[in-house]
Design a binder for these strands. Sequence first.
DNA 1: TAGTATAGTGTCCAATCGACACTTTGTCAA
DNA 2: TTGACAAAGTGTCGATTGGACACTATACTA
Lengths: 230, 230
Amino acid sequence: MSYNRRMASLRAAVDVVIFAVRERRLSVLLVKRGVPPFRGRWAIPGGFLREDEGLEAAARRELNEETGLTASFLEQLATFGAPGRDPRGRVLSVCYFALLPAGNTAVPAPGGDAAQAAWFDVRKLPDLAFDHGDIFEYALQRLRWKLEWTTVGFGLVPKRFTLTELQQAFEAVLGRAADKRNFRRKVLGLGVLAATREQKREGLARPARLYEFSAQRFEKLRERGVLFPF
Amino acid sequence: MSYNRRMASLRAAVDVVIFAVRERRLSVLLVKRGVPPFRGRWAIPGGFLREDEGLEAAARRELNEETGLTASFLEQLATFGAPGRDPRGRVLSVCYFALLPAGNTAVPAPGGDAAQAAWFDVRKLPDLAFDHGDIFEYALQRLRWKLEWTTVGFGLVPKRFTLTELQQAFEAVLGRAADKRNFRRKVLGLGVLAATREQKREGLARPARLYEFSAQRFEKLRERGVLFPF
DNA sequence: TAGTATAGTGTCCAATCGACACTTTGTCAA
DNA sequence: TTGACAAAGTGTCGATTGGACACTATACTA
């Protein structure tokens, strides 16, 4: 009944769906596979888990190898493990999703199995390798959902940002325009933003005030159960 | 740089946090380990993933082996994989959480590595084996959260149920009393319940109307984006 | 038929949210 | 210097939602 057939060979991959807003468009970083299987196809960046390496540590390592950057948000997404999802054998993919702040989104020279890396507008994705299409869809759904109901949104924007920049990031992810007054009311009403003394000019017009996310205020509210943990 | 040290040996366990409301108390099903490591300690039911077995299929199998029942809700929770979490070697635990409807919560004779199985009030848990304490906490947090913001709650109750039964299930999970009128207004306002002609007597008093969850109505609303997918 | 135990029902107030348009400020060019 | 431009910044109203709050209705039993 509960005889455990030990699996012949099992490997674990850690894949990271990396999102950033670039040119007001929500984008994902993909890598072009340089080796079989799916050679020449685009895929979500990732690699095999190493011995003595934690899952999140592996995700951070992959992210850093791929972008040279540190995520402003990183969270486990789900694990995909259908038999047959990888022609090389049984591979579980523990997936993460990461946000990078707008701005630092250069594409470095890729290493390893990836022939090249590039940002793609999420509306114009190529066919992806493995079951990465499913993984991407799931990640996007989760990002959109969390953006509306949590404070992850601040991960899409630099440390200091104008409210217009923040709004544009929201609009890029959700794919629809927001009302400026309602957006500001809501986001300031959260009580987790601190206005700085500095300003930023966007083009030739009136400068905008820079704000920053206040971790202290956020913690205080979270302790009182005001904000969503997920 | 991206040289892949292949892991010597990796196994994947699938563990299932099984919740049910019993005697108006939120309970979890635990098994007592009959073999090392952690022999004699209580643990979340689970087992190793088999070859050619999908993750969710493995979770269903474990659930069925442990309870003989089918879950009314089953969803992947997260994957835990810290090196050293299992003294036998590197083991990833892909965790699920499941709900059983109130009523059918008999404890069958356990098989395999489990010496015995028992329901525990979530407020009075023993020390658990491995990192199962963390897993449990995470599952409980997720359950509470989803109960308030999604329709999972109907998984805690039989196919046909009275509104009082449903309310008691909510109260058991959230650990606080709800106002009867507000609860009924909210739950009926979802538009996913259908009243049946039948009634049920609870004790000696006036019978209550039986309702059922209407998958059709739920789908219609979900298609319009009214209800939360998560 | 009186008692009892649970089912079932409606109002008020506060907070939230969406829709909606004009004034302010800084810069540049005429 | 001032007029034009471009983006920043700001408030109200109405609808909906959600929490607090207490009494009547019904089925049965003694």
